[in-house]
Nucleic acid binder design. Structure first.
Lengths: 196, 196
DNA sequence: AGGATTACAATGCACTCGCATCGTAAAAGC
DNA sequence: GCTTTTACGATGCGAGTGCATTGTAATCCT
């Protein structure tokens, strides 16, 4: 046989090409030939690494979520619970090209998951992470007196995540300016955290 | 010529069939033949009323927004600004089959609008309505003393709309229960309106 | 009454799709 | 060194796509 290759690396390379297409044209722009051309490889190679198109798509979905997760994690501001939460929220908003790209991709897969249970299952796995993170930060703030003790951390986490997600799409479509969304986020954080 | 027909009614009938397909299969399930079969008519008829597939899609997008608008308007609770806002928010959440259907359809078109400017333009026209409505209710509440005078109605409206939209998708995917989302909404309304 | 126009239905065309199949060059394993 | 396995590249198939074209029955207008 030819050189033993790194299967996961090959898969990721293909997935990256796929995601570039999703960014430009949405999921409906994805075809085996199209992905092959974008990746600069043959269709046979695509088929060698993914038995079906759906398997390739699901792999790309998981892959992009890992990318987002790592990028957000790298940008966290650890000075206080509030700063942590704020930096995480801001980093998930589509305020530069990289984040707009990821927001478009995530939106495309989200829409698909509304009609394809296999996609929805993958998405559901990722949801709890955010609310658990927000709730944990609120509890930390409560212990240090930076947040009122009578707040329900879980409920506040649901609201924080909803605000984050709810700001993404209008911003992506071009409805809000950066100042508007950041102002709204800070306004809400003022309600949870006592000090800046 | 044959009987003069109501063009708009025919178009709406076709659009309704299209939207049923979008609900079940997403935008990628829409084809001229598919829509014709769902509507129980011939492909020729579809082509007679819409010059291109894209024109048909945009018409359906506008049509479903009108449907949602009228349904929400019919469910408003006018007892107080808070009740008005609350009933509008609850009515936009996917908590029964009809609203889940509309949420799925709206999500499908939203994803398309991230890559197709013509769709995005249509969506942007509808956005201001919500925030203007929320801001107006907050101002009413301020005048009657039901909300603190120092709130910025526009900023609070952005947050209210974000929370609404941000709760839709996780609920649609099955991440939250009805009690969780309604509890979160009421919690936030408590922050804006003084009395129930 | 009859030509002009409307409202379709039917068919065809060029293209794209996912996937199966087939062939083959190369390296791993014995 | 020779067989087996891996990693593809190339090609083809049947199905589906949007849209153009053509045909025709019906009714409005004069």
């Amino acid at each position: 046989m030819p050189k033993q290759v790194d299967h996961q690396a090959r898969r990721r390379q293909i997935a990256d090409a796929l995601l570039r297409i999703v960014d430009r044209e949405g999921l409906e722009g994805v075809s085996l030939r199209h992905v092959a051309a974008e990746a600069g490889v043959s269709m046979g190679r695509i088929q060698h690494y993914f038995a079906t198109k759906d398997q390739m798509m699901i792999f790309a979905l998981i892959h992009v979520h890992e990318r987002i997760y790592q990028r957000v994690n790298a940008c966290l501001d650890p000075r206080s619970p509030r700063d942590l939460v704020r930096s995480a929220i801001i980093e998930m908003l589509p305020l530069d090209d990289e984040r707009r790209t990821e927001a478009r991709i995530a939106l495309a897969f989200l829409a698909r998951s509304a009609v394809e249970p296999a996609y929805a299952a993958t998405l559901r796995e990722g949801y709890p992470y955010h609310t658990v993170f927000f709730a944990e930060q609120i509890r930390r703030a409560q212990r240090s007196g930076e947040a009122p003790a009578d707040l329900d951390p879980e409920r506040e986490a649901v609201l924080l995540f909803a605000i984050t997600q709810g700001l993404v799409n209008p911003t992506l479509i071009g409805h809000y300016t950066e100042e508007t969304v950041i102002g709204a986020v800070d306004r809400h954080l003022d309600r949870i955290f006592r000090v800046r």
